[in-house]
Design a protein around this nucleic acid. Structure first.
Lengths: 146, 146
DNA sequence: CGTGAAAGAAGCTAGTC
DNA sequence: GACTAGCTTCTTTCACG
């Protein structure tokens, strides 16, 4: 990827609402040139979209946890992502190497909800779980190095 | 938090570049009314900012890993977040309950970089590490339920 | 791939209820 | 808090190098 594109991506990571005019000023390109490049970055899937960064506590989800899961039956077909896709409390699902098969990141309002969520995950996906509760988050979602 | 605010937050999570005009149409408010509400949400820290969602592979960081860390000397003052704050490969740092003290999420270009990064983390923070390599990511950064 | 111009849309700020 | 109004700024397209 070209240096100008990298620069544009970096600027949009820092401020997803930056105007094309400002992007142009910062990169030394004309407004329409950045516009074109951003469109291409979106089409190629380099930029997947844009989102607000929200304080989870402020929206009533103060409890974050990581749940590592392992199937009861390792020979069964592995369709966990689909099975759990409608469980909206799951923010992320990573297939991992190591002792367990997946790591899930979840957000809930209270410990009681975590308990119900774990039961739901175990029965929906046929897995055993190991849960690590987050106490605090010094930082999260820092921009990558690009 | 009020229902209208919740709705606005949900819309901005789905599309961080949505215009105030469209937010108004979707919520039944006038443009300036949404504008005002969004400003307040930003001031209160409910909305922390806006960012582009980028495909990490496409920007040259195809390798993601979770690193759980435990201090060599549990009685030493715990300033890991500050000690590691300039390590840009670290995307997130969570203090956690359980066997280990912190979980770090990192992104690098290649296995060799992960090796160097681990050495750097161990010496900077005085910790032992346990690393879980991500093989694939069915989903990530899904919007919370609000 | 880049530029520049021009029309239309959206952002922003007051003043009013 | 929300609305209307009006000025400013940005977006978006297109013709051209």
């Amino acid at each position: 990827m070209e240096d100008l594109d990298r620069q544009i991506v970096r600027l949009l990571l820092a401020d997803g609402r930056m105007s094309y005019t400002d992007l142009g000023r910062s990169t030394g390109l004309s407004t329409s040139a950045v516009h074109q490049r951003v469109r291409r970055l979106e089409q190629r899937g380099v930029i997947r979209g844009y989102t607000a960064v929200v304080d989870c506590e402020a929206v009533g989800l103060p409890l974050t946890a990581f749940i590592s899961v392992k199937p009861f039956d390792p020979s069964a077909p592995d369709d966990l992502p689909e099975r759990l896709s409608q469980v909206r409390e799951i923010e992320a699902c990573h297939s991992v190497a190591g002792d367990e098969n997946y790591i899930l990141k979840v957000r809930v309002a209270a410990p009681g909800e975590l308990e119900h969520l774990l039961a739901r995950i175990r029965s929906l996906a046929g897995v055993s779980t190991r849960t690590t509760v987050v106490l605090s988050t010094p930082y999260e979602a820092r921009p990558p190095i690009t």
